[in-house]
């Protein structure tokens, strides 16, 4: 099966973030970046489908500056066959990113196009669904299980207190939630082999970029807690403050 996986490179979720001097993004100094968590689930899902089917091709795509090549190579070190970088400066407009991907994917002959359900950094969740629309393909979002065979697919979606099982014809676009498969560790041989796999780089056709980040701000610092006293003696003061200051009683 020919599968495209569109990935994103995002900062490590355990990083301490600072707003950049421009105020329109984060300060990337000293930050560690990696293949986005949901994208790595998508890569793993693609690899497992092709391993089970005993063949096929898994191609990874990313839109972004040259730094995305590291994440593309990571996907190849996990087992993807080749990679394509659609070169562009970082943009906040998911529709523009989808346009660039759709332009590239439309003649690719893919049976399945996978995305992470959203990215860790801005959680917009736009690119997968918008790409499906631009390609005119059925789209399933946030799949926690995915099976494909004989020209059709089934997926499970976790809902609040329930689950939904959906069926769809291939080709299709599916965005992947955690739970679909645990991403493998790139083996050390895989890391060395990834250097030799093809990575093509070409300009991204973003079109008009209409959404930009005007300003980014961190939540205000929470004031320190106050200790009012000990035992029952502190209760009247606590109640008074909850009524008059916090106004929650």
């Amino acid at each position: 099966m020919k599968i495209a996986v569109c990935i994103k490179r995002t900062p490590d979720s355990e990083s301490r973030f600072k707003v950049a001097a421009s105020a329109a993004g984060i300060d990337e100094t000293g930050l560690k970046f990696d293949l986005d968590d949901f994208a790595s689930y998508a890569v793993e899902a693609a690899l497992q489908i092709n391993e089970k089917g005993g063949g096929g091709e898994t191609v990874v795509y990313a839109v972004g500056p040259d730094s995305v090549q590291e994440s593309l190579r990571k996907a190849m070190s996990m087992g993807a066959d080749r990679a394509v970088q659609l070169k562009a400066d970082p943009v906040a407009d998911g529709i523009a990113v989808a346009r660039a991907l759709a332009a590239e994917l439309k003649s690719g002959g893919y049976d399945l196009v996978l995305f992470g359900k959203h990215s860790f950094d801005n959680s917009a969740g736009v690119v997968g669904t918008a790409t499906a629309e631009l390609l005119g393909l059925p789209c399933v979002t946030a799949a926690s299980e995915l099976n494909v065979s004989a020209g059709k697919g089934t997926a499970r979606r976790e809902l609040e207190g329930a689950a939904e099982l959906v069926e769809f014809p291939l080709p299709a676009v599916v965005t992947i939630d955690e739970g679909v498969a645990r991403p493998r560790y790139p083996s050390l041989k895989g890391i060395m082999a990834a250097k030799k796999k093809p990575l093509e780089s070409k300009p991204a056709q973003l079109g008009a970029v209409r959404v930009t980040i005007a300003r980014m701000e961190l939540p205000p610092e929470r004031p320190a807690g106050r200790i009012l006293g000990e035992g029952t003696a502190a209760i009247p003061e606590l109640v008074r403050l909850l009524q008059n200051e916090a106004k929650v009683l």
Partner: peptide, 17 residues
């Protein structure tokens, strides 16, 4: 910032292990 003088493959191996 010792990561900055490690190659991409060196960091990848470290991160995988």
């Amino acid at each position: 910032h010792i990561d900055s003088v490690l190659s991409e493959e060196e960091r990848a191996v470290r991160d995988s292990v």
